[in-house]
Design a protein around this nucleic acid. Structure first.
Length: 325
RNA sequence: GGCCGGGUAGCUCAGUCGGCAGAGCACGCGCCUGAAAAGCGCGGGGUCACCGGAUCGACGCCGGUCCCGGCCA
């Protein structure tokens, strides 16, 4: 019988990746699959805390650097490629160790989610309708008429999800709610897998986030973003990566405009205040992201939680003991 | 020292003619099926710098004190 695949989930900056490396070394028969919506992009290295080339040599990693930063990426592409990677690993007699913090992606891989078709043009057209005055209310009314069940589950102001639901209905002629039971259903996974969650005290995690952002600056995050920008405009999906969006905004702000620069006039004579503000914004958004991750994973009763006082690696013995059974 | 502007939520700031104190962000709680590091909902939070006065009633008006910024000396 095939031994179950493994997964480690948890909030950003918890030390999941380092823990996964140690697990891989200890077990010997696993390969890592990054479950991360931003590490898929080549060149987004520092800000995504991507495993270093050296680390990637130690243990094979999958789903890292599989897209160009000018390309859009989506959960469906991830689902296809990650499942292919798992199958590939399995075919070589090894086990996959999924590691990551993108909740929807984790479920897209291990749960039987099937995503209805999409048509960007159709959706953009709906989105445009929604952007007109009173448009959101209009979209919600439309959806209520076509699919009351779906409409009840989507906040009237959430234009993006309203548009997606209407897009699916327009494309398929079926109610959006007729596709799947929703991600709040936690049933059989598509392959045997044991999922562990790492959990850090909030103040510890916040401190780790702050430290990590400073380290990213020191590692040259701003230069990395500048370089990426010169090689072509980041795609809609890549450009929203935490750290990249803020630095991009900051670099745009330096463009010598005369009024709106947001300069506070006090203190920083060398543009450093701008960088500092961007870094602070990164810290704040990372914290919020970690909170949403917590909310997401917390709901899944299949996750076994491992509390760590400082960083995730301290749970290694407990985790190995749990998985050896 | 003089003149001008300012002091209201953790931060930045609105507050009409005197009538129960507001927003954005932060923070907390939550939602989630093709952008998910996205998008969205809900909530807690105030000695309105301080002291005194007129008024039925003051964040607002009057007098004073303290603090911050700018200009002038």
């Amino acid at each position: 019988m095939i031994r179950p695949h493994l997964a480690i989930v948890g909030p950003t900056a918890s030390g999941k990746s380092a823990l996964a490396l140690e697990v891989a070394r200890a077990l010997g028969d696993v390969e890592l699959v990054s479950v991360d919506s931003m590490q898929v992009y080549r060149g987004l290295d520092i800000g995504t805390a991507k495993p270093s080339p050296a680390e990637q040599v130690l243990v094979p990693h999958h789903l890292i650097d599989v897209a160009d930063p000018t390309d859009e990426w989506s959960v469906v592409r991830f689902q296809q490629e990650a499942r292919a990677a798992v199958a590939n690993i399995e075919s070589r007699g090894k086990r996959a160790l999924l590691v990551g913090g993108t909740g929807l992606y984790v479920q897209a891989v291990i749960d039987p989610l099937t995503f209805p078709p999409e048509d960007r043009e159709v959706r953009d057209a709906i989105l445009e309708r929604g952007a007109t005055p009173g448009g959101q209310a209009g979209l919600h009314a439309e959806l209520t008429a076509l699919d009351p069940e779906a409409a009840a589950k989507i906040e009237p102001d959430n234009t993006r999800r309203l548009a997606r639901a209407l897009e699916v209905i327009e494309l398929t002629g079926r109610p959006f709610s007729s596709f799947g039971t929703g991600i709040q259903t936690f049933g059989e996974t598509v392959f045997p897998v044991r999922v562990a969650g790492v959990w850090l005290p909030r103040d510890v995690l916040n401190a780790r986030i702050a430290t990590r952002v400073t380290a990213m600056r020191d590692a040259g995050l701003v230069d990395e973003v500048r370089g990426l920008q010169q090689r072509g405009e980041l795609s809609r999906t890549a450009a929203q990566a935490i750290g990249y969006r803020e630095v991009l905004d900051h670099l745009d702000g330096l463009g010598g405009e005369d009024g709106l620069g947001g300069e506070d006039g006090l203190g920083g004579e060398d543009g450093n205040t701008g960088v500092d503000a961007a870094l602070e914004a990164i810290v704040v958004r990372t914290r919020k992201f970690a909170r949403r991750q917590r909310m997401w994973f917390r709901r899944d009763p299949r996750i076994s939680w491992f509390g760590a006082p400082g960083n995730a690696c301290t749970v290694l013995p407990a985790l190995l003991a749990s998985w050896s059974g």
